[in-house]
Amino acid sequence: MKVLFIGDVIGRPGRLFLKSLLSGIVHNRSIDFVIANGENAAGGFGITEKTANELFAMGVQVITTGNHVWDKKETVQYLFSENKILRPLNFPPDVPGFGSIVFNLKNGLKVGVINLIGRVFMNLSDCPFRAVIPEIEKIKKITNIIIVDMHAEATSEKQALSYYLDGKVSAVVGTHTHVQTSDEKILPYGTAYITDVGMVGPMVSVIGVQVEQIVRKFLNQIPQKYDVAKGSCFFCGVVIDIDNQTGKATGIERLLVNE
């Protein structure tokens, strides 16, 4: 099977550009399953029911998130019931939402998706390395096809997790930095990996935000409201080929499309 994993979707510009591309990519590349990180889909910070439904209507089947998942207050209640939007599994156990899902495709295949968050240079959460193993064991009773979104800042933490999970999951895909890396590979025991898949949003920006606002913050260190940049966008993602029976990855390809 072929899985398309889409980098962090940034605000309205990212949503609109994704809408213009997604059906064509799915058709031309015979994609079976689509995942997108949507934690910045609503105004560049957070996600709402409305923006999530936009992504679902485009053809995204599961949305992962990260540290910005709670930025819109209304999302807290929404995540009690919507299991196709994931928040990190290793958040405290009493928070609302779901850290994983087994998604049933129309062709009969089942795909597990797990959302994790890193701890290096980020707010502390439970250990992703320890939290993920029981979840993998639970999902393995249903399907061998498992995709992990590791939402983390440090490249070392993402790489370490990928080797820790090599052979246990189909892919470990990094998100959060919004900058696509060029280290896509298949690890020795059949797990696909990339340190960061990138983003979908404005090209002339600092990870999606207006350039002058970020530069000003670096110059004066005064907190301010950030706005999503305008102008032409680009799309980042990866296509992962997975053996239906074993769940091992057989290929991973980076996608980068400019508007």
Rank of each mutant, 00 (worst) to 15 (best):
K110D: 07
F121A: 03
G99S: 07
E157G: 00
I133W: 05
K140R: 15
V148L: 06
E135W: 09
I136R: 13
I145Y: 06
E137M: 12
I136Q: 15
V120L: 09
L109E: 12
I142Q: 15
N104L: 08
H151Q: 08
G108F: 13
L109F: 13
S156E: 05
V111M: 02
R119H: 08
E157Q: 04
N104K: 13
V120M: 11
I117W: 04
A154S: 08
V132D: 05
S100G: 11
E157W: 01
I101W: 01
R119Q: 06
K106R: 09
F103I: 03
K110P: 04
I139Q: 12
P134Q: 03
R130E: 09
L109P: 04
N107A: 03
I139F: 05
A152D: 03
S156L: 00
P128E: 06
I142G: 07
S125D: 10
E135T: 04
R130F: 01
E157R: 04
I139W: 09
K141D: 00
I133T: 11
F129K: 06
L105K: 03
E157M: 01
N123V: 12
D126S: 13
T155N: 04
I114D: 15
T155P: 00
I147L: 10
G118Y: 06
S125R: 15
I101E: 01
S100H: 13
V113T: 02
S100D: 12
E153T: 04
